[in-house]
């Protein structure tokens, strides 16, 4: 690896450590990892927010209840606008997806905490599950008519095979882009943060002049942290929106 031992390794934060081993089954090693721990922390936080936010049941919401209700209405409106009334069956799924991604993103921004969404296997599994769900729902709702998604209107007959091929490729690229977008954003953001934080440590080791020089990267780190909060919320939102958009294709392939 390029990183020398005395420098801050920006990749170290993505290492998965086994907290306790569960053994090997069928050649696969299973363990309760730090990744799993933070998944459950996120799940617990989401549930706690919604549970305790709704425990007072007051007409005029308090602080926690406002947050819970805002989150609820935000996703509810999103699903309702994109998918309509028949899409409300997917509301719990979209909400879980958004809350899971949002909370794991935010948890990752706390120093020393693990970012679950910076693992390609997590985002990939979510994206593949979404696309499989789109396909299953599409065929269940429309039967063979779902395939009309790949046959756009008003295309001349000679071009149709090529256009359909492109449509199919673009459909298959969806889970790839969906998972890589979230993964890449989280990974890149955390690497950049770590690199700038590494500059601070490196400069501070040079003595008093380096301390003054370290103010620059420190300010940069603060600014990037703020940007990363924006990115964390935005990527969770985009993930939920794109899931809705793809599900809309499943419900209404003729557009």
């Amino acid at each position: 690896m390029a990183a020398a031992e005395d420098r801050v390794d920006p990749i170290h934060q993505f290492h998965i450590n086994d907290l306790f081993d569960l053994g090997t089954f069928g050649g696969m090693k299973f363990a309760f990892t730090n990744s799993a721990l933070f998944m459950f922390v996120a799940v617990g936080l989401v549930f706690a927010l919604l549970y305790f936010g709704s425990s007072s049941r007051s007409m005029v919401p308090g602080r926690l209840q406002s947050v819970a209700e805002e989150l609820y209405s935000f996703i509810r409106n999103l699903v309702h606008q994109t998918l309509g009334e028949e899409g409300m069956a997917f509301f719990p799924f979209i909400f879980s997806l958004f809350a899971f991604v949002l909370f794991t993103n935010f948890l990752g921004l706390i120093p020393y905490f693990f970012t679950v969404t910076s693992q390609l296997v997590i985002t990939g599994a979510l994206a593949v599950f979404i696309i499989l769900m789109v396909v299953v729902v599409g065929f269940a709702k429309n039967g063979v008519g779902f395939l009309s998604l790949f046959v756009p209107h008003g295309v001349p007959g000679a071009l149709l095979p090529f256009i359909s091929l492109i449509e199919i490729i673009s459909f298959l690229a969806r889970p790839v882009s969906l998972s890589l977008r979230l993964f890449g954003n989280m990974l890149a953001g955390h690497i950049v943060l770590k690199v700038f934080a590494g500059f601070i440590v490196g400069l501070a080791g040079l003595g008093i002049g380096g301390w003054i020089g370290a103010i620059g990267p420190l300010l940069m780190t603060v600014a990037i942290t703020a940007l990363e909060f924006l990115v964390a919320a935005l990527q969770a939102f985009v993930f939920a929106v794109l899931t809705c958009v793809y599900l809309k294709d499943a419900l209404h392939p003729h557009h």
């Binding site: 882009s177 890589l180 977008r181 993964f183 890449g184 954003n185 935005l234 985009v238 929106v241 958009v245």
Partner: peptide, 14 residues
């Protein structure tokens, strides 16, 4: 606009 930005950004992430 956000969706478009996310789609465009995704290609850069690739």
């Amino acid at each position: 606009a956000l969706i478009g930005a996310a789609l465009a950004e995704g290609l850069g992430i690739f």
